[in-house]
Each structure stands twice: as structure tokens, then as C-alpha cells.
Design a protein around this nucleic acid. Structure first.
Length: 415
DNA sequence: CGTCCACAGGAATGACGGGCGG
DNA sequence: CCGCCCGTCATTCCTGTGGACG
């Protein structure tokens, strides 16, 4: 108790003392502002599509596409919240369920979230997915209400589990009396449509909205809107804000990125006791974010992936130009011997290399060396020093990168 | 112009741990 | 406690292929 009070007072003091922030919560991803600049039109269209739910009509399914940080999720959540408020006001039987398919992870967990939205209790694992589906239907049948399902990052669900459950969902209305289910699918991968069964696709995208990336000017408006709430009067240099907008605009117009830059820049300024956030802080923030991302990514890697990455690192150190799957695999096997581990097959390592490529720690592309086969050329995706720093956290890896050159000498001799 | 390298990357299958209902 | 199903990781086997070399 006493401790809590003591801590509270520290927090309080820090909040009051902050010369930079007024309310940093505003810069977090999950914060939904009550005004979304440059998305008025999209919001209007979403409302038009889902408003019929208030009158218990079936509304069209909606498919929303746009790159990351274009405001898809924010716009949908914003509309959803307003709709739910309205429905409470009118006592309309509307329910909604927002699921992020990537965070949910599996088909099963997506379905179980839907179940909990209609007050159906299901164990969090153990049941066959078909069974879950039946229980969901039973739940809906006994409810007589509209259910609005938002499937965020829906492409993930389809890539992992195929489109069968989506197919079932789109036609669940046929076996329901009284209840109505509508689906809003959100994806940032447009090619995802190619993976879908045409029947599912046509049903899912009865309506379709594309969110375009923001340009620098639009990003600036968004940042200004938030900065007014987040920062103390005069604590943010206009140039700093503009730089955040420009950097993010150069990178697919990602508003999330712009907000991250602004928040971290503010934190850096605060930590060094400055009373002004400058362009310099934004530059530092840019590097800081990348740095933290890499350290975090490496930390969460399974051991074998770390060893694969380590091989790439060591190879880059001696010969940064050509590293192929075969080269990496050779060194990787040596490293395994060094640590006393049974090496995985080359097929498996090939997949691991792919995964490392996806998270950006490596960058690889398939090349053909004609007579000498077809392979992937692999380079580090980030600076060597950062990787080294990340490895330093792990005792075993730290030892490896320090004194392995012995086995390297053998494998690089052939050229 | 065909061959053939050194892999890419799909499909099927197996081993294993976790969690459930009965 | 058992049998069952699931999800994850890994292996095995496989077919496919761009282009330098002969």
C-alpha cells in the first residue's frame, strides 16, 4: 500500500515535471483519436455499409485493403465504437467482435474470440475447429442479434489456415434464423485476393474500400493533431514534426511509423533533460527504433536460427560479396559442432534463411550461376555492429563470434 | 542447343508436448 | 489416467529451373 503511494508520487512528479509531454498515451498505436484527418471519406463509406445493422438488416460484407499505417484499423474501430454507442442508445441488438488474426495466431483462437463475443464459452484449446464452429452457430441462433465481425490482418489467417473457415463464415447466415452475421475483412496484402476461392472473394468483397498511403502533407496534419494533445506547448520544434512526416512518407506513407518516430524522439529529448524536441532527436529516434527492433528480433530467435544468422554474420565479415545457401550451411554445420549440437538438414536451414529474410535480418534473392547451379545470394539485412551487439547477450554466441575464424579459414579458402 | 549444377521450395509424413473430455 | 486432437518443428522425398558451359 505504502509502496504504491510512494510509486504514485514518483509517477505524479514525473508527469508534472515533464517539460516535453502532456499526455504521451496519445502517441501510442492503440489510441484512437476522435478525429481522423484525411479519412473522412473512407469513414463515411464504412458507416454506410454497416449502418443497416442498427435496423437488424443484413449489411454487406466489406473488404478493406491498404498498406500498414494507412488508418484502416483506426477507421474501422472508430466507426465500430460509434455504432455500438448508437446501438446501446437505441437498444438495438447489435454485437461486434474485433479480432486481429495475426495476434490471435491460429484459426482456432480466431473462432474462439468470435464465440466469446456472443457469450459462448469454449475451452482455449482441445476442441476440433468444427466443433467450435457448431457452438458458435448455436450461440448465434439463440441470440437473435446482428453480429459484426472484424477480421484484421485477414491475409494472415488465410495464408496459415486456408480459406475454409472463411468460406464457412461467409455462408453461416444460410443456417441461421434470427441472427445476421456480417464480415469486415482488413488486409494489407492485396495479392491475398488471389489466394481466395472465387466464391469466398465475391462474398467477402460485396463492398470494397482501398486506403491509400498518406503523403507527407497529410502525415503532417495527423501528427499536428496528435502533437497538440501529446506535447507541452512549444516543446516540439515544427521542423522535428515535419521531419517525422517526411521520413514516414518516404517509407510507404506509414502513419504508425510517423507516430513512433515522434514518440521516441520525445522520449529521447525528455531523457536527456531537454525542453525541446528537435530534428536531431528525430534522427536519433530513427536509429534507436531500428536498433531496438533488431536486438528484440534476435533475442526471440530459436537457437538454430541464431546459428544460421551467426554464419551469415561471420561470412559477411570475411567476404561480404557472395554468400550462398551452401556456404552458409557449411559454416552453420561447423558452428553446430562447436556448440555440440546436431545440425538441421539443409532443407530446414533453407526455410530458416527465408524466415530471417522475412523479418529483415537477412536479405536474400535467388540468382542463377548458370553451369554452377541456382541458389540464393544472402547478405545481412542490418548493420554488423548491431548484430554483434545482439549476439553479445548470449554467452555461447558471444564465444562463437570471437574465436571461430579457425573453421572459417577452411571454408573460405575455396573460391 | 542441350546438359546439368545447386539449389528452391512444395507435399507428405513423423515426433513431441499440451490440453481436453470422459 | 487414457485416448484423442491440435499445433509446431523437423525430416524425407520430390519436382522444378536459369543460364554458363561444352
Amino acid at each position: 500500500m505504502q509502496q504504491k503511494d510512494a510509486l504514485d508520487s514518483i509517477f505524479e512528479r514525473m508527469l508534472n515535471q515533464s517539460r516535453i509531454f502532456r499526455d504521451r498515451e496519445v502517441l501510442q498505436h492503440h489510441y484512437i483519436p476522435n478525429k481522423l484527418p484525411h479519412r473522412e471519406e473512407e469513414i463515411h463509406r464504412i458507416v454506410e455499409v454497416i449502418a443497416p445493422a442498427l435496423k437488424s438488416y443484413k449489411c454487406s460484407n466489406l473488404f478493406i485493403y491498404g498498406k500498414t499505417g494507412t488508418g484502416k484499423t483506426a477507421a474501422v474501430k472508430y466507426v465500430l465504437e460509434r455504432l455500438m454507442n448508437k446501438s446501446r442508445e437505441l437498444k438495438a441488438p447489435v454485437r461486434s467482435c474485433y479480432v486481429n488474426c495475426r495476434l490471435a495466431g491460429t484459426e482456432y483462437r480466431v473462432l474462439s474470440s468470435l464465440c466469446s463475443a456472443v457469450d459462448v464459452k469454449v475451452p482455449f484449446t482441445g476442441l476440433a475447429t468444427g466443433e467450435i464452429f457448431e457452438r458458435l452457430k448455436d450461440g448465434l441462433n439463440s441470440q437473435r442479434s446482428s453480429l459484426l465481425i472484424v477480421l484484421d490482418e485477414i491475409d494472415y489467417l488465410v495464408k496459415e489456415c486456408g480459406d475454409t473457415s472463411l468460406y464457412e463464415l461467409t455462408r453461416v447466415n444460410e443456417s441461421l434464423q434470427g441472427s445476421r452475421v456480417s464480415i469486415i475483412g482488413i488486409s494489407n496484402d492485396l495479392r491475398f485476393k488471389e489466394l481466395l476461392d472465387p466464391r469466398v472473394l465475391s462474398s467477402l468483397s460485396e463492398e470494397e474500400i482501398v486506403f491509400k498511403p498518406y503523403n507527407a502533407a497529410e502525415l503532417r496534419d495527423i501528427l499536428q493533431e496528435r502533437a497538440k494533445l501529446a506535447f507541452q506547448e512549444g516543446a516540439l520544434l515544427e521542423g522535428a514534426l515535419n521531419l517525422c512526416a517526411a521520413l514516414a512518407a518516404a517509407e510507404h506513407g506509414d502513419a504508425r511509423r510517423a507516430l513512433d518516430l515522434l514518440r521516441v524522439a520525445g522520449e529521447l529529448a525528455e531523457r536527456e533533460g531537454a525542453n525541446l524536441v528537435t530534428e536531431e532527436h528525430v534522427r536519433l529516434a530513427e536509429r534507436r527504433i531500428e536498433h531496438d527492433r533488431v536486438i528484440e528480433a534476435v533475442r526471440n530467435l530459436p537457437l538454430h536460427s541464431k546459428l544460421v544468422l551467426c554464419s551469415a554474420y561471420l561470412l559477411a565479415k570475411v567476404d561480404s560479396s557472395r554468400a550462398t545457401t551452401g556456404d552458409i550451411y557449411g559454416i552453420y554445420c561447423e558452428l553446430c559442432k562447436e556448440v555440440g549440437l546436431e545440425p538441421l538438414t539443409q532443407r530446414r536451414v533453407s526455410s530458416l534463411l527465408n524466415e530471417l529474410d522475412v523479418i529483415g535480418l537477412l536479405s536474400s534473392n535467388v540468382i542463377s550461376m548458370g553451369r554452377y547451379g541456382r541458389t540464393r545470394r544472402i547478405r545481412l539485412g542490418v548493420g554488423r555492429s548491431v548484430i554483434k551487439e545482439a549476439f553479445a547477450e548470449d554467452e555461447r554466441l558471444k564465444r562463437l563470434i570471437d574465436h571461430v575464424p579457425r573453421c572459417l579459414a577452411a571454408s573460405t579458402r575455396r573460391s
